[in-house]
Amino acid sequence: MRHLLSAGEIDRDQAVLILDTAAELGAVTDRSIKKLPTLRGRTVVNLFYEDSTRTRISFEAAAKRLSADVLNFSAKGSSVSKGESLKDTALTLQAMGADAVVLRHGSSGAAHRLAHAGWIDASVINAGDGTHEHPTQALLDAFTIRRHLAPEGGDLAGLSVAIVGDILHSRVARSNVHLLTTLGARVTLVAPPTLIPVGVESWPCAVSYELDPVLDSVDAIMMLRVQSERMQAAYFPSALEYSRLYGLDAARLSRLPEHAIVLHPGPMNRGMEISADVADSSRAVMVEQVANGVNVRMAVLYLLLAGDGKDAG
C-alpha cells in the first residue's frame, strides 16, 4: 500500500493484515515504554481542514509511538484559512519533507486528489473526506468488533452488523459498509429513506427503514451521530420523532442478543440517537474504540511508511 484513501480499495487480506498488525502493536500500548523506534526520522503531517480533535490526537499518538516527527497543520489560524489552495499547501508540505500526510477535509475526494494530482510524493492517509470515506474509523470499528466477537482473529465472516442513522452524509457508514463486507460480515443499514442515498442498491448491504425488526439478529450495532442541521433541512420531522423511531434506548438494547455490542464513532448525541443509559452500559464499547483507534492508526502508518514504499508481492 502506498496510500490509504478508501476502505473500498482494501481487499480482505490487506484488511486482516492491518488488523493483525494493529493487534501486535496494541501490545506495546500495554507496556510502560510505549514508544517504538520504527519511524524515527520520518515526518507525518496532520493536515486538518475540519476540526476533529479526537481524530487528530489519535493519529498524533499513533505517529509519536512509532517515533515519527509530527507536524500539525490545522485550518484555523493558518494559511489555509487565508484562502491558500490545497495544492499550495501540499507543495509546502512537500518542501518540508513530509513522508505522510493525514488529511481531514470537507470535500469528498480531497485525499484522492492530494494523492494523485502530482502535487506531493508523500503517502496520503484519508482521515475523513466530505461525505465519502473515513477508512481508519472503519478499521478501528472492525478491530473492535473482531476483538469482541471473533477473538481468534481472521475476518468477520458470519457476523451481522447494523449501522443506524444518517447514512446519506456519513463517511463512517460508507467506509464500514465496504470494510465489514470485505471481511465477510453482513451489514444492514437502518435509516429513514431521506437519509439513505439514491443508488444504495448498488452497495453490498441490506437496507431497513425500521430499527426494531433488525434488533434481535445483530451481533454489533453502530449508532451514527445525527446532526441537528439535518432536521432543519427536513430530512425528518423532529428530533423527538427521530429518536423514537431510530434511537437506541434501554428497551431496544434489551432486545439485542446477549453478546451484541454497541458502537458509536463519536461524538455522541445522548438522548438523540443513543440514550444515556445505553451509552454508559457495559455493552457500549466507545472507550475501547478510542484506544483501538490508536493501534489501528499505528498499523496503517507502519504499513505505509516502514517499508521501501514499493508494494509488496
Binding site: 501490545a27 516502514a306 517499508g307
Partner: peptide
Amino acid sequence: LDITLYRDDLRLRAVRPLEPT
C-alpha cells in the same frame, strides 16, 4: 520477541508483516 519494529533495514525492503511478541 519480534524484532521487526527495531530493524535498521526496514526501508530497504517492502514492508514486513509483524510476527507475534
